[in-house]
Design a protein around this nucleic acid. Structure first.
Lengths: 252, 252
DNA sequence: AAGTTTCGTTGCAACATATGCAACACCCAT
DNA sequence: ATGGGTGTTGCATATGTTGCAACGAAACTT
């Protein structure tokens, strides 16, 4: 763990929230302005940070290029995408694809129902890990000690009265999900939104990604949403088959 | 310029080419293995780098998350987006939005005609700078010495027989674009694809982004596409107005 | 199975490098 | 003019980073 690099990298999420000037960066990093300046300069040279005309800093172009390459290396996404679209065509609801990476669950694709162009809205943002259907699916596939370790490290915010309250309940839920091969989130994150999900598996049977369909209560009830379960599971299995079949052995 | 940070950041483009193990990273950085290890660890803690099962490193999904968050905060894009969609609704063709940054032109938004969900495909990727209509528009707005400096640094790949052949031709084209306030790419990148574009200007009149409409020959001829020019220019002007109007004075 | 190579990891001492300070330069407002 | 607000530079100190060498573990050979 390198202190200097650590500080420099801490600037990135800070700037992701919006442009900031030198003083703000220094303050939020807890370092002297001159130090912040030099770190920013280095980031700037690598194109990760951009300096706009008012001299404030924000994230730069190269970061986007890198991110693009990073996501291209996730070939699950490419394979899954057309199937997610097809699913969206049939049911009309929002479809998500997520992966587990380093103690986090991240959406890597999304097809939205009403506003097809508003796709970016949440991709890349960390998922509410204790309640989301995709998170349960991904965590349920870890080994028992891993699950336990993570469950105990997590916070359990009560987004709603139906949110997972604590580690014990979470582990129990994971066991259920693990056995039944699918997962739900019924109003656990937002009171009026329900969600059903299924796992995408690699050739060795391990879960490499998870997909879900979300819809608000006002459109369909939880019961109606659950009738889509076979369709969702079938889609996930189709993706799994294609992913395990056409792929080079060692990936993601 | 911080050496430590500089080395750490140099790892990212290196990994963008594909996964690498510790030894490879150390060698290509020209540092000792232990040094590379510590740098990688720091990158890892910030999620920029992911360690796959065979212990090799690759770019992490967090990068994607950061970029995503940053893109959301780019307000040109937010303001322009609905107008791009409206334009797409009317003409049916692919619509692009691009910005210039640090010697590069990048697409930051795209509304595609046939495959509305395939939006991600190229966003964030550098544009073919010597031929694309949006690139001409963005570069044409720079000062004369800047244009000359860039034009001389560029390569001029002959994608097709109509591609811009050299710096002289490029500068001449920029002068034309600058004066007429719009640009075209008629088969300069791909033989069968034509493109027309217009600039988005900020409060001070400077070009902050450029938009374009693209369509293949088989759908509409170049002449037919040109009839859309007034519509495209009007859209760009609408975005410009909204952008300069509702915003605090100093912004990208 | 034992030997051998390869790769990742750790502790440590020496050095190089990042740090905070203080002073300067600059712009905008009063 | 003058004051507060920026961003920027040179410098001496010491903090943090570096390479080394040795360890451990796993993979491959024999």
């Amino acid at each position: 763990m390198s202190q200097t690099v650590d500080r420099a990298l801490s600037i990135l999420p800070l700037l992701a929230q919006g442009p900031a000037d030198l003083g703000q960066v220094a303050e939020r990093l807890g370092v002297h302005k001159s130090t912040a300046l030099r770190l920013l300069r280095t980031l700037h040279e690598h194109g990760l940070v951009y300096r706009q005309e008012d001299q404030r800093y924000r994230l730069g172009a190269r970061l986007f290029a890198l991110a693009q390459e990073a996501v291209e290396n996730l070939d699950v996404r490419e394979i899954a995408h057309p199937h997610l679209v097809a699913l969206n065509d049939r049911c009309g609801h929002t479809v998500h694809l997520a992966v587990y990476e380093e103690q986090e669950v991240l959406y890597i694709d999304k097809v939205e129902s009403r506003y097809p162009v508003r796709m970016y809205s949440r991709i890349g943002k960390p998922v509410a890990i204790t309640v989301a259907a995709v998170a349960k699916l991904l965590l349920a596939d870890l080994t028992e000690p891993e699950r336990r370790a993570i469950a105990e490290k997590l916070d359990y915010p009560m987004y709603t009265s139906r949110s997972t309250p604590d580690a014990a309940a979470f582990l129990k839920e994971l066991a259920v999900v693990r056995e039944q091969g699918w997962a739900t989130d019924l109003g656990g994150h937002e009171e009026s939104i329900n969600c059903i999900g299924a796992p995408v598996r690699g050739a060795d049977g391990r879960v490499v990604a998870a997909m879900s369909v979300s819809a608000p209560n006002v459109v369909v009830t939880a019961e109606e949403l659950l009738t889509l379960l076979p369709l969702v599971r079938r889609t996930a299995e189709t993706i799994s088959r294609e992913y395990s079949g056409t792929n080079r052995p060692k990936k993601v």
